[in-house]
Design a protein around this nucleic acid. Structure first.
Lengths: 166, 166
DNA sequence: GCAATTTCATTTGTATACTAACAATAATTG
DNA sequence: CAATTATTGTTAGTATACAAATGAAATTGC
């Protein structure tokens, strides 16, 4: 059941352009094709990636941002919450929720920083550390599955180009 | 230059970032560098794109998904809400909220479909139609600014590669 | 013609993500 | 040292996103 093909099912979209006979009062269509814009293509590619992520990580697995935080914490050091957010490209408000949910699931611990009363130090719990090897294995499979439509050279080119867009 | 696989296999790995002296009971770090994974790079590129989008559209402008819906509606025809969602890569639950917010702002109208009692037909309002030319102009600027770090050839290559990831 | 299935839209719940405003604490500087 | 500024973390609010469940309406399959 479930798995209602979300968006990708039977194409309601002809690959052809969105042409419209220049009719009376309608605004001129201009030459703007949504489906070819970088933002739209990135959104769709990410939707597919996230679906792959959830399929491989499983229902009780971490979300992409939760895994990103755990991955950075797996280096072993305690990191302040905000710094961890910067390392994983998350806003302070966003990383707060991510860490809260990881803490609820017993995967990370939050400790006061003795040197700075403002800071909260975050680290993996024992349970979190034990989960890391399996998660890394799955994360590699996720990256591979996401890039599967491309050859190795194409994938390398894509990653290089994406890296320049930030 | 063939640096690493990033695709599937566990191969030899030079250039270790994320150093970790193999200490006691900690899990082995493996060769997984978050910052080089396709999902992380796409998330960052999209964050930048959305920031550009908001800057150019302005504070009272549409969001990316709101604009996507308006862009498809600008062809002039009335479309059912779910079909519009498929055309813009949005879940039925997602497109519902997008259309509701556009309706609150008077940019679209929702009408019952006389031929199908289940359907809601959506179309641009007069105010929405008037806004379209300016929005399309800005949308072009947004795509250009997002791709600004790349040459034209690189941008074309990126778009072609992204289009194959969906 | 009618039961089974599918489609459409909605509602609820969870999880990003960002802005803005805020309080507490550190760091800087005059 | 006092005043200013910066950093850290939190809360509230808005807007995607998707899963799952539901009810109503249309199609189909026999």
């Amino acid at each position: 059941m479930s798995r209602q093909d979300s968006v990708a099912d039977t194409a309601a979209k002809p690959t052809a352009r969105q042409r419209k006979p220049s009719s009376a009062g309608t605004a001129a269509p201009m030459d703007y094709i949504l489906d070819e814009q970088v933002g739209f293509l990135m959104r769709r590619a990410q939707q597919r990636h996230i679906a792959i992520f959830q399929r491989i990580m499983g229902d009780d697995g971490p979300t992409p941002t939760q895994f990103a935080a755990m991955s950075k914490l797996s280096a072993g050091e305690e990191i302040s919450q905000n710094l961890l957010g910067r390392m994983t490209a998350m806003d302070p408000a966003t990383i707060k929720g991510v860490i809260a949910r990881l803490e609820e699931r017993g995967l990370v611990e939050r400790l006061p920083d003795p040197d700075d009363q403002r800071r909260v130090r975050v680290r993996l719990s024992a349970k979190g550390r034990e989960a890391i090897p399996g998660l890394l294995e799955k994360a590699k499979a996720i990256s591979a599955a996401t890039l599967a439509p491309l050859s190795r050279e194409e994938a390398e080119r894509l990653l290089a180009l994406l890296a320049r867009l930030d």
